[in-house]
Amino acid sequence: MTRYAMVIDLNTCVGCNACMAACAMENQTPVWKNEWRTYVHDQEIGTGEDVLRRFFPRLCNHCDNPPCLSVCPTGATYKLDNGIVKVDEDLCMGCRACAMACPYDARMEVTWDDVEKGKAFYGSDYRRERPSMDKCTFCDHRVEKGQKPACVETCVGSARMFGDLHDPNDPVAQLVASGVARPLLPHLGTKPNIYYIGDVKRRG
């Protein structure tokens, strides 16, 4: 059984935003309203003279225990055996309970208006027909074909690594096992599957 996960090494993320652009183009997201399946914070941390500029990529954590799924009344939010959490455009009625439940700000709305704009923007290739909640799919359509997710594929810092936690030889699995890579808000019991390698130790 596969269990997909991503490790993000903050030490080589340069905040180039290639992942945002790649994701938008690959997944036809509503760029016109500046909303993203993945986005990269550009933050100043540290105190006094000891300043650090941190780039912090964010996306759906494909939680093992996803609150977004359990609150979904229509079954639009579902989970594949490989752990990828998806939204079914046809079933979703857009109540947004999932967005309320998600602790990681990983979901966005696609409205009728967006569907119209999308037809104009992505032209003949636009895939969506109805509005729904939208989120990162781990690019399962690429993963199925043995490719990496678009954001990982293009990551110029190789900060994003994608792999299978259930494969002991997978570098991603090893990084997670070693404990250098840690998830966000684990105390919420969501069992997230995006892991981060911290950058602070690098200072001075």
Binding site: C16, N17, A18, M20, A21, A22, A24, M25, E153, T154, C155, V156, S158
Partner: peptide, 12 residues
Amino acid sequence: RGKICARGQSGL
């Protein structure tokens, strides 16, 4: 090495 930046990605 199979990678491009945001400008490259958005190029189309």
